[in-house]
Amino acid sequence: MNRRSLLGLAAGALALPAHRHASAQSFDRPVRIIVPFAPGGTSDIIARLIAPDLSRAFGQNVVVENRTGAGGNIGADHVAKSAPDGHTLLLIDVSTLATAPSLYTRLPFDLKRDLAPVTMLIYAPYILAVHPSVPAANAAELVAFARANPQRVNVAHAGIGVGNHLTGLLVTQHWGAELTQVPYRGGAAALSAVAAGEAQMIINGATATAPFCKQGTLRAIAVTGPARLPDFPDVPTFAELGWPADQSGTWQGMLAQGGTPAPMINRLATDIGAAMAVPATAQRIAALGGVNRVEGPESFRRWLDNEIEVWARVVRANNLRLD
Results as ranks from 00 to 15, higher is better:
N2G: 12
R3A: 10
S5Y: 14
A13T: 15
H19A: 15
R20W: 14
A22R: 14
R29F: 05
I34Y: 06
P39Y: 06
I45T: 11
I46V: 11
A57F: 00
A57Y: 01
F58R: 06
G59T: 03
Q60D: 09
V63E: 15
T68E: 09
G69S: 01
G71V: 05
G75R: 00
P84S: 14
L90T: 02
L91C: 13
T96I: 11
T96A: 15
T99E: 05
A100Q: 10
L103N: 03
Y104W: 06
Y104D: 07
T105Q: 14
P108S: 08
L115F: 08
L115K: 10
M120D: 13
P135D: 05
P135V: 07
A139W: 09
E141A: 12
E141Y: 06
A146H: 03
A158I: 04
V162T: 13
G163F: 02
G163Q: 10
W175V: 10
E178V: 03
T180R: 14
R185H: 09
G186F: 03
G186Q: 04
G187H: 00
A188S: 14
A195V: 01
Q200E: 04
P211T: 05
P211H: 08
F212E: 09
K214H: 10
K214S: 13
G216H: 04
T217N: 06
A222Q: 11
P226L: 11
A227N: 10
F232A: 10
W243G: 03
A245W: 11
G249M: 02
T250N: 03
L255N: 06
A256E: 05
G258R: 03
P261F: 00
T270C: 06
D271F: 07
A274L: 05
P279Q: 00
A280D: 12
A282Y: 03
Q283D: 15
A286S: 14
V294M: 13
P297Y: 03
F300E: 14
F300N: 09
R302V: 05
V310F: 09
V315N: 01
R321M: 06
D323Q: 11
